[in-house]
Simulated assay, not measured.
Amino acid sequence: MVRMFVNGQAMSGGSIHAPLTDARFLGRAWTAPRYRFWSFRDEFPGLEPVSTDGWSVPGELYAVSYAVLRERLLPLEPPELELAVIELADGSGSLSMRVRAEALAGAVEIRHPDGWHGHLATRQPG
């Protein structure tokens, strides 16, 4: 089992959450304040590690098997993202998806305190 931090469509209620329904939910979590957070066409978000101007991005933490990660979750991730090890707010590490450096063109920065869900709520008409 490994820890996987998710902050977008793999979170509860998201379009690619199904692979995590049998994983053990470890709770809400935040990244260390070393990341910028980007929206890609309002379809999915991505973390970018930075040395300045970062913030703590909210998400969910799961204990997941390598098999579920390899066979069920990672194949659903968009090509703009790659698997990486990130730092959480408590100083520990976790696997997570992050933006590939060459994929940032056209992305819109998210700074909503509620992360992806908050960003999407502000984009909904009405």
Results as ranks from 00 to 15, higher is better:
H112A: 04
V99F: 00
E87W: 07
A89C: 01
E80T: 08
A107S: 14
L120H: 05
S12V: 13
A105Q: 15
L81G: 05
G54V: 03
F25K: 04
S56Y: 00
G8W: 02
M11Y: 08
L20S: 07
P49T: 03
W55D: 00
H17G: 09
S51E: 14
P19C: 10
T21W: 01
T52C: 05
L20F: 09
P49C: 01
Y35R: 00
H112R: 05
D114W: 13
R111M: 02
G8F: 02
I110K: 09
V64P: 04
A103W: 00
L26K: 06
S56G: 02
T52D: 13
S51I: 02
P45T: 08
R24H: 13
Y62F: 15
A84H: 13
R72W: 06
P125H: 11
G54P: 03
E82P: 00
E102H: 11
L81Y: 06
E80V: 01
Q124G: 03
E82M: 15
L69N: 03
E82A: 13
L74K: 12
R24C: 09
G126L: 11
M97Q: 13
E48N: 00
V68F: 07
W116S: 08
T52M: 06
H117C: 01
L26F: 06
S15K: 14
F37R: 06
R70H: 15
V57Y: 04
S65D: 08
A32R: 06
A10P: 07
A84P: 03
D22V: 03
W116V: 10
N7I: 00
E77R: 11
E87G: 07
R36D: 01
P45Y: 08
L47R: 08
V64K: 03
E43Q: 15
F37A: 08
I16M: 14
P113F: 03
D22M: 06
A18L: 12
A121G: 03
F37E: 07
L26I: 04
R123K: 15
A23T: 08
W55R: 05
D90P: 05
H119F: 15
G27M: 04
S65F: 02
R36H: 04
G54T: 03
E80S: 12
G59L: 12
E109P: 14
